[in-house]
Design a protein around this nucleic acid. Sequence first.
DNA 1: ATCATATGTGACCATTTGGTCACCTGTCAA
DNA 2: TTGACAGGTGACCAAATGGTCACATATGAT
Lengths: 117, 117
Amino acid sequence: MVTYDAAVDAVFKALADPTRRALLDALVERDGQSVQALCDRFPDMTRFGVMKHLAVLEAAGLVTTRREGRAKLHHLNPVPIQQVADRWIAKYAQPFTRALVDLQTQLEHDPPEHDTA
Amino acid sequence: MVTYDAAVDAVFKALADPTRRALLDALVERDGQSVQALCDRFPDMTRFGVMKHLAVLEAAGLVTTRREGRAKLHHLNPVPIQQVADRWIAKYAQPFTRALVDLQTQLEHDPPEHDTA
DNA sequence: ATCATATGTGACCATTTGGTCACCTGTCAA
DNA sequence: TTGACAGGTGACCAAATGGTCACATATGAT
């Protein structure tokens, strides 16, 4: 339970940064890109910045790598996202409908004022 | 597109912290809790820490509040999670199956060594 | 061997973030 | 009105984070 949550936490933290999500996007668009290729797509960042973000994504299991000559190719691994998303949807899909019921119940007790101006 | 992404980013950043996810869990378990009630569930944090996290969740639209007397009740709003999850599942569900195809293609070119020791 | 290419490492810095506190405001009840 | 209770604000600090660089290693081509 706890050991499992460490992986979940890594995924959430990895997805928290918009640059890293953009990197994932780039890999969705074309899988198996090298660091160089990814650097070309992010001119606002140096190679080191890109590498750091890729390292975070790899540590979270969202990206796998494989060497090909002197290049390191990065492949997207959507499995962790799938798993986390499934867990969270299952958790919050139920309250979603229930919240509507709660809202209705609440409105009966505490109706909002109409804008009758 | 950009204005929309700001909201998405807020949701991701809000979910990045395990304490905030735990707060959401507490609201799933029992909706409409006051700051005090939530503080009781997190003895390792002061009231101010809880308040800050709740503010982040509220700014991301994941939590809505309503005053009742001198208490401020916090309600879970699963809609943003639903929306973000839907967008991301749609984006990464397709590459999931495609990745298997890519893997198979890749294995034909670069087969892994067997552990035949 | 030599040189250009591609990636790796450690140190370094500015900013953000998580967390706490002293102090203040608002609300209920006696 | 007095006091206890619930929440709010701004300042403050330590740690984590995003980002950069000088330097080092490994690979491919000539």
